[in-house]
Simulated scan of single mutants.
Amino acid sequence: MSVNPEVSAIRPFTVAFPDAELEALRARIAATRWPDKETVDDLTQGVQLATIKELARYWLAEYDWRKCEATLNALPQFLTEIDGLDIHFIHVRSKHEAAMPVILTHGWPGSILEMLKVIEPLADPMAHGGKATDAFHLVIPSMPGHGFSGKPTAVGWGPGRIAGAWAELMNRLGYREYVAQGGDWGAVITDLMAVQAPPELIGIHTNMPGAVPQDIDAALLSGNPLPEDLSDEERRACAQLAFSYKHIYYALLMGSRPQTLTGFADSPVGMAAFMADHDVPSMALISEAFAGKAVGLTRDDVLDNMTLYWLTNTAVSASRLYWENKFAFLATKGVTIPAAVSAFPDELYQAPRSWVERAYPKLIHYNKLDKGGHFAAWEQPELFVEEVRAGFRSLR
């Protein structure tokens, strides 16, 4: 597949932070003023003091950002201006020329780093238990205001505009037929790409499906009674949703007062504690990682991501996406193109097939997995890779 000849619009990019910035980060970590210990013995008050102290100790004394920097710089990275804003992206082409192009979109408080573990298995499946016919060309952009992409200086960069920018990016790279995948914000953006339906987009895969019926979503948010004819599986999903909606105050704050989070640009440990409390299962994973347990995320996974936010000073600019958003996170969006759905048990909710079939009328794949959570590519890369392969197989 040929690449757009307008190569002058696509510039190579290299990550290079000076030592002075890393020293300044360590100085701020060392100067942290700590709160008192929580008054409970569990996670019900948020990230425990012992966890965040161990995170800070490791960040200060053992963590090495240069390893992450080298990993990124070993990948082909680029910048291109779209709609007046620089967009950073990784672009890995498979050695299999017939590979399927896919654009993978991260979420918050994640980044492109969520996808690093799945790049090689998706691009080179024969080296990772797959077949040549499973191969993908990968495009992994940083959302506006996140990572190495530009920070919007005016309003208007909501998920719908990002969806349009992604279609332009794929067109600029010369892909005349491609698929899209996403979780968290990436799931919302991927759904909206499907709603916008550029002719080159032939299908999507989501691991956080927007499948909640509008009436149920409204009832859960308002506290009104749910329909009486729900199945047991649907009731379990509603219970998960009710719990999730009760614990998304971070989203309410970012959605109403992102600029109030100025402290995120001043205190790396304060920023880290807020980011670690995205959802209860993910917070538990992070807590276990810093307690020395082998779980889906390592201490370096967590701190690579947090250090990226700190060094690029994007904790506040990334938060503004919540303020810009006008779409329900988990409710149906009106997708009508082929769609694949992977329902992980520790997601904000495990979407019942009955809801998924209504939300995605051209459903080409549905699998209800028995492990994995919100950051599926990061936590369970092998399962994620197989789901992406299986999800898009019928479109090849």
Rank of each mutant, 00 (worst) to 15 (best):
I202F: 07
L261C: 10
M170T: 04
Q196T: 08
E21R: 14
P152R: 15
Q214P: 00
L348A: 11
T298S: 14
V388W: 10
E234M: 04
A390R: 15
V118H: 06
P338D: 08
V118I: 14
K67I: 14
R161L: 15
L369K: 07
T71Y: 08
A74E: 14
W378N: 00
A315L: 04
K246Q: 12
D184F: 04
D346Y: 07
L192Q: 11
R172Y: 10
G391P: 11
L60W: 10
Q259Y: 08
C68E: 12
Y175C: 09
R236M: 08
V47E: 06
P361H: 12
P101E: 15
E97S: 14
D184K: 04
A328W: 12
S342Y: 05
L173P: 12
D217M: 12
S319D: 04
P198R: 05
W378Q: 00
L122G: 13
V269K: 04
T44K: 14
I10V: 15
K117T: 02
K53W: 01
T153G: 14
G182M: 10
L308C: 12
I189Y: 11
R389W: 11
S222V: 13
K326W: 05
V212G: 04
G372P: 06
P199E: 13
L220K: 09
N73S: 05
G186K: 06
P227V: 02
A265C: 00
A291S: 10
G372R: 05
G255A: 00
H106V: 06
F136W: 14
Y245G: 07
P35M: 14
D134V: 12
D279Y: 06
Y245I: 11
A99V: 14
K293V: 05
L113N: 11
S317A: 15
A20Y: 05
T133A: 15
N171A: 14
G296R: 02
G160M: 13
Y322Q: 02
V385H: 04
R396I: 11
T44H: 15
E168P: 02
E228Y: 00
L201K: 03
K362W: 09
D229Q: 10
C238R: 05
G263I: 06
L55W: 03
A272L: 01
F329G: 01
W355Q: 10
P227T: 01
V295C: 00
P381F: 03
A9E: 15
R235A: 00
V385R: 03
P18F: 07
T336Q: 13
A135D: 15
F264P: 00
A294G: 00
V356Y: 12
A328N: 14
G296P: 00
V3S: 07
A276L: 05
Q240K: 06
W166F: 13
F13N: 05
S282E: 02
N313V: 01
A135L: 15
D229R: 08
P18R: 08
P18K: 07
A294I: 03
W310M: 01
W65R: 10
G292W: 06
A30N: 11
T39L: 14
D300M: 07
N305W: 02
K53C: 01
L116N: 02
V341A: 04
A343R: 01
L253M: 07
T298W: 05
W157M: 12
A70T: 09
K246S: 13
A284E: 10
Y309K: 02
